[in-house]
Amino acid sequence: TQVHVDGVTYTFSNPEEAKKFADEMAKRKGGTWEIKDGHIHVE
């Protein structure tokens, strides 16, 4: 599962880990995350 944050791609083999990471990054940025085309995007 790929997580895209500010133009950087992080790859996780476990989708649950990817979601936890996205959640943390979104909180830090004061933003949100969503799943697009099977990838997670942090806004």
Rank of each mutant, 00 (worst) to 15 (best):
V3I: 02
H41W: 15
Q2K: 13
E17W: 07
D23R: 08
Q2S: 10
T1A: 06
E34H: 14
T9R: 08
V3W: 01
H39A: 12
E16S: 10
E24V: 08
W33P: 03
Y10L: 04
F12G: 00
R28Q: 15
K36W: 07
H39Y: 07
K29A: 14
E34T: 14
T32M: 08
I35E: 12
R28V: 15
T9H: 07
T9K: 09
D23V: 11
M25I: 14
M25T: 12
F12L: 03
V5I: 10
M25G: 02
P15Y: 15
W33E: 03
K36E: 05
H39Q: 12
D23C: 10
G31W: 05
Y10D: 00
V5N: 04
A18E: 00
P15K: 10
F21A: 03
H41R: 07
N14K: 08
E43H: 15
T9F: 10
V8L: 13
E34A: 11
H41G: 03
T32N: 08
K20D: 12
D37P: 02
F12P: 00
W33A: 05
K20T: 12
Y10T: 05
P15M: 15
T11K: 09
V5L: 08
K27Q: 14
G31P: 02
K29F: 15
Y10R: 03
H41Q: 07
F21D: 00
E43N: 14
V42D: 02
T11A: 09
A22S: 03
T9I: 15
K36M: 08
M25L: 08
D6R: 04
I40C: 04
F21L: 02
E24T: 06
G31C: 08
G38F: 04
F21S: 00
H41F: 15
V3N: 00
E17I: 10
K19V: 15
K36T: 06
A22Q: 01
V42F: 10
P15V: 14
G31V: 05
E43K: 14
S13C: 09
R28D: 14
W33Y: 07
K29G: 14
W33F: 05
D23N: 09
E24L: 09
Y10G: 00
F12M: 01
Q2W: 12
K29I: 15
F21H: 02
I35R: 03
T32K: 12
K29Y: 15
G30A: 04
G30F: 04
I40K: 01
E24M: 08
F21G: 00
F21P: 00
M25K: 05
H4Q: 05
F12W: 03
E43Y: 15
V42N: 02
K19W: 12
H4P: 00
D23G: 07
T1I: 13
R28S: 15
K29S: 14
T1Y: 11
F12E: 00
E24R: 07
V5A: 07
V3P: 00
E34W: 14
V3A: 01
D23P: 00
G7I: 02
K36D: 04
G30R: 05
T32C: 14
E24K: 08
H4G: 02
V8G: 07
G30L: 04
E16V: 09
E16F: 09
Q2I: 13
R28P: 07
G38S: 05
A18C: 03
T11E: 11
D6N: 06
I35L: 13
T32S: 12
D37R: 01
I35P: 03
A18D: 00
M25Q: 13
T11S: 11
H41N: 07
Q2P: 08
M25Y: 09
N14V: 08
E34G: 07
K29R: 08
G7D: 09
V42R: 01
E34K: 11
D6W: 04
R28A: 15
E43L: 15
F12Y: 04
K20F: 10
V8I: 12
K27L: 14
D37E: 09
G31R: 03
H39T: 10
A22L: 01
A18W: 01
N14W: 07
H4A: 04
F21K: 01
D6Q: 06
E34C: 11
A26T: 09
T9Y: 09
D6G: 08
T1M: 14
P15D: 12
N14R: 07
T32W: 14
G38T: 04
E16K: 08
A26C: 06
A22M: 02
D6L: 04
T1S: 06
V8M: 13
V3S: 00
E24F: 09
G7C: 08
T11V: 13
K19N: 05
E17A: 11
F21Q: 01
S13A: 13
I40V: 04
T9D: 05
E34D: 08
N14D: 14
A18V: 01
V8P: 00
G30H: 07
D37I: 02
G7R: 06
A26H: 02
G30M: 04
G31T: 09
I40D: 02
K20Y: 10
H39W: 05
H41M: 09
E16P: 04
K27R: 13
I35H: 07
G7W: 05
V42S: 02
Q2L: 13
P15S: 12
V8Q: 12
R28N: 15
V42H: 03
G7E: 07
G38A: 04
A26S: 06
H41S: 06
E34R: 09
G38N: 07
A26L: 06
Q2V: 13
H4W: 10
A18P: 00
E43S: 15
I40F: 13
K19G: 07
S13Y: 12
P15F: 15
T11Q: 10
G38Y: 03
I35S: 05
K19I: 15
I35W: 15
K36R: 14
I35Y: 14
N14E: 11
A26I: 14
A18M: 01
T9N: 05
W33S: 04
W33Q: 04
D37G: 09
E24G: 05
Y10S: 03
K36Q: 08
T32A: 08
K29E: 13
D6A: 07
H4T: 09
Y10I: 06
I40M: 04
G38R: 02
H4M: 07
D37K: 03
I40T: 01
G38Q: 04
E17C: 08
Q2E: 10
E34N: 10
V5S: 07
K36V: 12
I35A: 05
K27G: 11
I35F: 13
A18H: 00
T9G: 04
G30N: 10
H39K: 08
K20E: 13
F12Q: 00
K27N: 14
K36C: 09
D23K: 08
A18T: 01
T11G: 07
F12H: 01
G7M: 06
A18F: 01
G31Q: 03
K19E: 13
K19H: 10
Y10C: 05
R28G: 13
S13G: 11
E34P: 02
E43M: 15
A22G: 03
E43A: 13
E16T: 10
A26R: 02
K20C: 09
T11R: 09
E43P: 05
V42E: 02
P15H: 13
D6E: 09
K19Y: 15
H39E: 11
Y10P: 00
W33I: 11
N14C: 13
D37S: 04
A26P: 01
D6P: 01
H4R: 07
T1G: 03
R28M: 15
P15I: 15
V8S: 09
K36P: 03
G38K: 04
T1W: 13
T9M: 11
K20N: 11
W33G: 03
F21M: 03
V3Y: 01
A26D: 03
F21E: 01
H4D: 05
W33M: 05
K19D: 03
S13N: 11
K27Y: 13
K29L: 15
V5Q: 01
K19Q: 11
V5F: 08
T9L: 09
P15G: 10
G7Y: 06
G30I: 01
D37Y: 05
W33H: 03
T9E: 07
E17V: 10
G31N: 03
K29V: 15
G7H: 07
V5P: 00
Q2T: 11
V5W: 03
W33L: 08
E34V: 15
E43G: 13
I40P: 02
N14I: 08
A26Q: 03
W33R: 00
A22D: 01
T1C: 11
Y10Q: 02
D6I: 03
E16W: 10
T9V: 14
T11C: 11
G7N: 10
M25A: 11
M25H: 07
K27A: 14
G7A: 06
G30T: 02
D37T: 03
E34I: 14
A18R: 00
I40Q: 01
F12T: 00
A26F: 02
V5D: 04
H41C: 10
R28H: 14
D6F: 06
N14Q: 09
D23M: 10
E24C: 12
G30V: 02
V8H: 12
A26E: 04
D6V: 04
G7S: 08
V8K: 12
G31F: 05
T1F: 11
E34L: 13
E17G: 06
E16G: 08
F12A: 00
E16L: 09
R28W: 14
T9S: 10
T11M: 12
